[in-house]
Design a protein around this nucleic acid. Structure first.
Lengths: 354, 354
DNA sequence: GTTTTTTCTGTGTCCGCGCACAAATATACG
DNA sequence: CGTATATTTGTGCGCGGACACAGAAAAAAC
């Protein structure tokens, strides 16, 4: 049953193979050179004794130092990206004894040039690994290609970029999460309801990939299962709440029959606030991400559902993947979709994304 | 920003305090005896240099051995408890280098005597810590009191037992999860619907605490928000599917208007199978736990929702808590409610409870 | 004041592994 | 065959902390 115990040390397998511990070490780490003869003897010994290195001893003895770069959009307190950074920081903290340190680089997510500039800075810093969200597709691709050339592993967060292949990706299946959003919302709406779709306007980036994919998924569900539904698309300006409020008033005047709203990014609270102020509690709302303000409106009952994607996990796992790969030399799973967590006022208090 | 680095070793603070490393060690571990004078000097040094021990070195040097006992109901392949054990095993594996080994003890969950006997065996084995679900309230309480007397820390899984206080508890808020189940189900039902409530009959245990609490939560929601709903309670016999099928036929003949079903334990698939065979796809079903068979019916669309409670996490975290407490001497959070995960056919593929 | 006991302290070894360095063996080449 | 070079191997130290042991200092007993 539980026979796994049996501590086996490198010297044990060295003895069994009739060679020195140093040679075993070379085989294990593929370093230096070893004669074919010894290699075979050692590999056999490894098989028969199923040796597993002691992580703690290994880490302790490790001399190499690693510097990771983490690129993150500039954020305000409480934002989505703050949580990602939190996860990265926790990992940095936990893995500090591995001689891993993380340097953060920030860019303005509404400005391609800022992004480009930051990429440049990262390249100058010559990190051992990079972790970043592929915000601007083209720029990210070029940057990733540079990393690939230099053999610097990189982890993608939030949205995927197939080429060049990252060491790992952590993020949500956006299409599917939009699909679910539609399903949830329609549970509370009539089959011929009118739904307002909100997304954010971005300079130089017509909504992030994520947002667009969510919308696609949402519409896919609506069109295939509730063809009688009408949808109205509205663009929010993240920088100008006042303008949004006016747009909202216009919208509800023009389409008073609107009974559902979906916000494809984390600005749910803005929409919720406006709808609440306009006394339209009949409108069912679903949005994304557990910002404090969003949760507030969820608990109040203004927002029906929030869909979460464990941003802290994304950050944490990203760093962990790099450590696994670089420090422990273990294989890493490439595509890692985060769970699509459904939160309501009833289960929000028990939710923890860690 | 990230100034946390700065490796500080025991010898560093020993030097600063003007004592030997051994003395610092004594203060840190509260072992041996240290003069008041030295203690103060060391504590000051610790404060000014904010020393954090290197976990890896600490583990490596540790000589003590720990034997944990894990008590689990006998289960069939694919059962809920298999997942709990899986989590425990993974933790055991991960923490093996800490000289922690886990011995499993099994009991028949339908038989108090078996449980009592197993408790007895565990006591004989004199483990350093115990992890178990408080299945039978009275027996568990007596057992826990014995552990308390012997100063053996114990972790409770699945259902809580306030007295004597466990080192930690990992499980779901059952009442709340029942509450949510009702809310979800009612999204697809009319306000005057008739709902069948299923729970399992247990010899000597009228349904586990968990099940009863879920039912309470469910009924609480229904009574307060949908007073026109009717509910019919049905008892399943886990051992006799044939009998269940007949009971089901009777039920649907007697109450043909039933349009919803909730199964308060992991036997969802049994009910789903019967309902499917009786061609009553109009009945909306919600159940608990991600058994393979349950997931199958969820994906087929026979079951609308499954509520999960991360059993692997419970097992894993339970062992981790014991390690944190015994090996690393760190404080442990006592009450740990697991998230109430809502699964539908749309997000099930992305779910991972680890 | 001396002996015994208790309290306190410093030193040194080991945990298992990574890695550098030196030594040994093999291969190449004139 | 001797020397130069390349390949292969063994040994030993150190990572940072736990803990045992012996010895010093202080307290208690006589």
């Amino acid at each position: 049953m539980n026979k796994s115990a049996e501590k086996i040390r490198i010297v044990d397998i060295a003895r069994l193979a009739g060679v020195s511990a140093g040679t075993v070490d070379r085989v294990l780490h593929n370093r230096g050179s070893v004669s074919e003869d010894s290699r075979i003897k050692i590999e056999n010994a490894l098989k028969t004794m199923n040796y597993r290195p002691n992580v703690y001893a290994s880490v302790l003895a490790l001399k190499k130092k690693f510097q990771f770069a983490c690129i993150i959009p500039i954020y305000n307190k409480g934002d989505y990206w703050e949580k990602v950074e939190e996860g990265v920081r926790q990992a940095a903290d936990e893995f500090a004894p591995l001689n891993v340190s993380i340097r953060f680089f920030y860019f303005n997510q509404f400005d391609v040039y800022s992004c480009r500039l930051t990429f440049e800075k990262v390249i100058q810093a010559t990190p051992d690994a990079v972790i970043f969200p592929s915000f601007f597709k083209e720029e990210s691709k070029i940057f990733a290609e540079g990393m690939q050339e230099k053999n610097i592993p990189f982890v993608l967060l939030d949205s995927m970029l197939p080429e060049p292949p990252p060491l790992a990706y952590y993020g949500q299946d956006s299409f599917q999460s939009g699909f679910i959003a539609a399903k949830l919302l329609m549970l509370s709406l009539k089959e011929d309801a009118t739904i307002a779709l909100f997304h954010t306007f971005r300079i130089g980036n017509l909504g992030s990939n994520q947002t667009l994919e969510r919308k696609k998924g949402f519409l896919d569900f609506i069109r295939s299962r509730f063809p009688k539904c009408k949808t109205v698309t509205v663009e929010l300006n993240a920088m100008n709440p006042q303008q949004n409020r006016e747009a909202m008033q216009d919208l509800l005047q023009k389409y008073p029959e609107i009974s559902g709203a979906v916000i494809f990014n984390s600005l749910t609270y803005m929409v919720a606030e406006d709808i609440e102020k306009l006394n339209r509690s009949d409108i069912q709302i679903i949005g994304y991400d557990l910002l404090e303000k969003n949760v507030e409106y969820l608990k109040k009952g203004v927002v029906n559902y929030l869909i979460a994607q464990r941003p802290e996990q994304q950050g944490y796992q990203g760093v962990k993947a790099l450590c696994d790969f670089l420090v422990f030399k273990q294989p890493v799973k490439q595509i890692n979709y985060m769970p699509i967590d459904i939160l309501t006022r009833e289960n929000i208090d028990y939710y923890s994304s860690f």
